[in-house]
Amino acid sequence: MSADPRLRARQQQAAATTVATPPPPPPPPIDSQPMGLDGANDAHAEQNTVPDDSFKLKFCTVCASNQNRSMEAHLQLASAHLPTISFGTGSLVRLPGPTIQQPNVYHFNSTTYRTIHDELAGQNAALYTHNGLLNMLGRNLNIKSYPERFQDWVPGKPRLEHAEDQGSQGTESGVVDVVITCEERCFDAVLEDLHNKGGKLNRPVHVFNVDIRDNHEEALVGGKAILDLALSLNEAAGKEREVHGEGAWQSGGGAARSGFDERVPDILATWQERWPNMPALWSLAWF
């Protein structure tokens, strides 16, 4: 992604007030947030995490193959102790192959990351190490066991069997409050699939799109942007709850976002100003 040169001045102004900037392209870090985007790729600083005793929204990240962008975001959200699940909207899991005509294609919901990892490592370890696939798969298999397809997901169906997945705590009931897609195509697919599912749960869900290009570097930056958005949303939801007298709320169960829904457009607009290179969309949909 190329940075808009016309915005450079603004970015530099913003950057001047902060300590450090993340690797290129540098989105302006936010000083109002309780976290610092310090450019350390894999180390998630302590202040990014949400304490377990506070209120938590439940998140779902979605990309095409549930491999790169949604998994990077999944990792970052889960590392911040936010309840997270992730999906892909494609018909199949598609990974680059030796040539552009020979992609590696796998079925959703049945092929584990480990299987894919081992198969590719056997096929051409050098190639797939070089293009980062093995690294990515190695990361993924530590997050959860297999890529899941959004369209096959039954919202409301308990996910007790996913208890080992990172970020699974709080998602046992199989519903989320926020869906974040990484591409407009996926956003459309999610809205359409929710129409098809018919809103039987009568439960509102905020669907966001954050446009991220499908490569490792962008996924990393995009993951930070998504984490930023998620923390902003979570903070707003938590705050609204405290205003109404939240005491010793222990569990993250149930839907509790009072007063926060109407602030979502504002939060997103503020976020968009911080991350102008990732055009955002949003819609209130129904499970």
């Binding site: 409301g156 009568n202 005491g247 010793a248 149930g254 839907a255």
Partner: peptide
């Protein structure tokens, strides 16, 4: 009644009657 229990109760009922199980 404490507000937490009411919240929990309302959430639980919502979850229960939405559940496809």
């Amino acid at each position: 009644q404490s507000i937490e229990i009411q919240r929990w109760g309302a959430d639980f009922l919502a979850e229960a009657f939405a559940s496809p199980t």
